[in-house]
Amino acid sequence: MAATVAVEKLTRMFGSFTAVNSIDFSVSRGEIFGFLGPNGAGKSTTIKMLCGILVPTGGKGQVNGFDILSEQEKIKSTIGYMSQKFSLYDDLTVRENLRFFGSIYGLEGKKLSDRIAHAMDMAEIGNRGDEVVKNLPMGIKQRLALGSAILHDPPVLFLDEPTSGVDPIMRRNFWELIYNFSEAGKTIFITTHYMEEAEHCDRIALIIAGKIIALDTPARLKGDLAYEVYSFSVENFIEMFDYIQSLDFVSETAIFGSDIHVLCEKGFPLKRELGALMKKKNITNYHIEKISPTLEDVFVTHARKHGV
């Protein structure tokens, strides 16, 4: 079956700067596809090209079967889009906002009222439909923005860092909605720089400096990691971090909260070696254990490899 979104050698240059460098991927129907990368890696540029608002300088692609180079207007009417920026009119009421956004997608009459009711239901607006959006709590606004993006019932939903600036509980609620869409057969394309958010995706593309450096399910990405990961906790961990980083059998180090993640070659007896060193330094109050790698470990390893 044809992919909902597919690109080949997609490239975008800004002057001599390559924002997106010949990337390939395809997303199938109902999939939640995550785009994970640091700021400026090319996530938003990619999404803009897929939404038909930025013309690629190279390569090709299609969304919902429409060419991203020549059929932008058709793409626009068959996708939903929600950005990191808040995108409803603050000074209009909930209903006025939905009416406006619905109508610019060509909805009218009964169809429009039905969809508005549906979106308000989803956002759990209750009886606040005639309130000015400005006065609503952030969580509801977020859901409302999502509701507004799917008024015209698009088969694909592009979410550009939709949960930045939202607290964890709201983020969880938000993801429940996204799962519902996916179950209803909608394709979700989401960019994020939150690792735990990326874990929710069916597949993730790691993008760094405009290039996709890894693309797989979260489980397989973690499984493919060439290193073993240990969590090391010690009293003054910031000093120890520098020390551990300097050891030649340690491949990677990263700070997670007050723990240090230490990566080393598979099979290396890190626990014993590090224990010996600690003994030499007269440090007894420490804890070390082998853990299964997180996406962040995967990401950090890949990022270091690509010189970021």
Binding site: F86, Y89, I104, Y105
Partner: peptide, 14 residues
């Protein structure tokens, strides 16, 4: 400034 332009731009409005 507010960001509603982004939403307008991705919509089929000409």
């Amino acid at each position: 400034e507010v960001g509603t332009m982004d939403q307008i731009v991705v919509s089929p409005i000409r």
